[in-house]
Write a protein that binds this DNA or RNA. Structure first.
Lengths: 105, 105
DNA sequence: CAAACACTTGGCGTTTTCGCCAAAGGATAT
DNA sequence: ATATCCTTTGGCGAAAACGCCAAGTGTTTG
């Protein structure tokens, strides 16, 4: 048995996996899109109008969210629609707000 | 009134503010420390042993968490103890796990 | 007061992220 | 088929994050 055991490595991987998901959420535009998607599916061009960046930028943000498992996409005709895959993320916002409020106090 | 109104700017700032908090949580070591702090306050050296990085690195991670409003610190003698300021963050973990599980499925 | 201990800060090189432009893919319409 | 529309991918420079080392701060101990 090493000083740094196998369990520690497994533990690190666990937190690394979690951090990947958190990283996907750690961007203003992506949070904005998640908030929008909480009100229903949207195509990429709608989300581009929302965040006001180049559509390629928006597409890459969506890819990050998709690879993290937060959203899923579906092509319908010319457009690609995105929707939330795991809505519990919306619960984060309340807590985040209280962090922000506590920070001001 | 501009095409991009004042409300949009305020909205952007809101999400930027939230993203700052999420960014603070978006690192394996920091998640690990948060998890540890959920079981009680810890000094920096204890957290250094936990994550296994240089103590200066750990200290900077803690600063990030502190500035985000997630933890608070208190000096007692030679040591500085950190504790969670907003425990609701622990609720994130359950949701994150379901994102990870859904991603595998 | 000097030494030791616990922690923070500054600085540096490396890696990652970000947003744009240009080009490529995929689907529909003419 | 060609053109058009919507989206993705590749590539690039700029900015930010990471982790270490070295140096500095604050506190206790001898």
């Amino acid at each position: 048995m090493d000083a740094i055991g196998k369990q520690d490595i497994v533990l690190k991987e666990r937190f690394a996996e979690r951090a990947e998901v958190m990283k996907a959420l750690a961007h203003p535009s992506r949070l904005m899109m998640i908030d929008e998607l909480s009100r229903g599916e949207r195509c990429v061009c709608e989300l581009r109008d929302l965040v006001g960046h180049d559509i390629s930028t928006v597409s890459k943000h969506l890819r990050v969210l998709k690879e993290a498992g937060v959203v899923q996409d579906e092509r319908r005709g010319k457009q690609v629609y995105y929707r939330l895959k795991v809505p519990c993320i919306l619960n984060f916002f309340h807590c985040i707000e209280s962090v922000i409020e506590a920070g001001k106090g």
